[in-house]
Design a protein around this nucleic acid. Structure first.
Lengths: 200, 200
DNA sequence: TTCGTTATTGACATTTTTGTCGGTAGCTCT
DNA sequence: AGAGCTACCGACAAAAATGTCAATAACGAA
């Protein structure tokens, strides 16, 4: 009876690297399998570490989920903040901006994040969302160059449609037998026409 | 030491009534607190029965969730099937039809149901959804009175927007400080204008 | 090289959630 | 009233998920 020495050597990361590694694993779990698979064991396994390691860095599985929400929200805010749509821009530029907005929600699971937030709804978690929305809205409205009230309406409309299409567009399209991205295409087309009519 | 007799008398329902009672309790849990609160103990408590009673009727908590999905989908299909939007109807009639569609998703948690389905995604469960969508699509397309291809597009567009607005419209509106239902109003307005232009 | 720090881990403890079982009680039928 | 059926329940067992702890092993500093 011999002492069995673990064959795979430990990897030792900086705390930041380790946290990022775990959150990335959790994020792909969320996007690919849904929130209910964000269990301690699953996250740890996906990250390639022991359960105890996850807890060492985050304290609890709830804290992991909270941190994941915050990271994904921050990423999303960055994506959106990078979009510039001056009011006097040519139509093509605004179309590009809207496409980027829709992409931000459809790819990398931002729409899934939004649905998760919508369904969980723990008020404590909403603080982060509220702050993010206010940041984005303030910037967008300030450089919209139009009266703030209708600018808010446009933002509300665009974002609602973007997240809705991002979440449901692909599945509904597939269920109806339409090519991937058809819902997004139709929506963007309509939205752009609407904006042009408002401007002209 | 006396034998303690339970003070509250048992209620004895028919199996159908009992199942309906339990599913109704589960439904309001889903709508008000999200899918993660669909636990055996929570559902039983909300329904006012013992845990074992829930299992007696459904066998497992997963079966409860499956049955709930099926019941909610059936209800939703009924609501949608009841909508009649002939292609040659006056604009006002089509507007009413669309409003009804949007209502079907926003009220009574159909949008939440859709988000739940989207996030869970167990392929076994998708069979029911696929059947429901095909039923609805077939009927809607058949009496749309327009070429089936663009009729499908219109359905895809309307339903995607309806469910997206139903799920995210209220929260986003509130976050931005808009009155309840503003997102729906804006979307309907745009969608109706779009349809009119297509027809005219 | 030696030492101190701490990220990492397996084994274990605790809590939460699900499911089982024998008996009880409401209802119907005779 | 009595008997059979079964919805219903409390108590318990099983499973699953979360969290604790002491020991280990990378890595940087002395």
């Amino acid at each position: 009876m011999s002492i069995t020495k673990n064959d795979t050597p430990r990897v030792r990361r900086t705390p930041e690297e380790s946290r990022a590694n775990i959150l990335s694993a959790a994020e792909s779990l969320l996007v690919q399998q849904g929130p209910q698979s964000l269990r301690l064991a699953d996250v740890a396994k996906a990250a390639g570490v022991a359960n105890a390691t996850v807890l060492h860095h985050f304290g609890s599985i709830d804290a992991v989920q909270q941190a994941l929400m915050e990271r994904m929200i921050a990423d999303l805010v960055d994506s959106i903040m990078a979009i510039e749509i001056p009011a006097d821009a040519p139509a093509a530029a605004r179309a590009d901006g809207l496409k980027t907005l829709f992409d931000a929600f459809e790819t990398r699971g931002a729409a899934r994040l939004a649905a998760w937030l919508e369904l969980t709804d723990e008020t404590s978690r909403l603080t982060v969302v509220r702050q993010a929305v206010q940041d984005v809205a303030q910037k967008k409205i300030s450089n919209a160059g139009v009266p703030s009230d209708s600018a808010e309406d446009l933002i509300l409309l665009s974002v609602t449609l973007a997240v809705g299409v991002g979440l449901f567009g692909p599945s509904l399209g597939k269920l109806i037998g339409k090519p991937e991205g058809r819902a997004r295409e139709l929506t963007l087309q309509m939205l752009l026409g609407h904006l042009e009519r408002l401007a002209g």
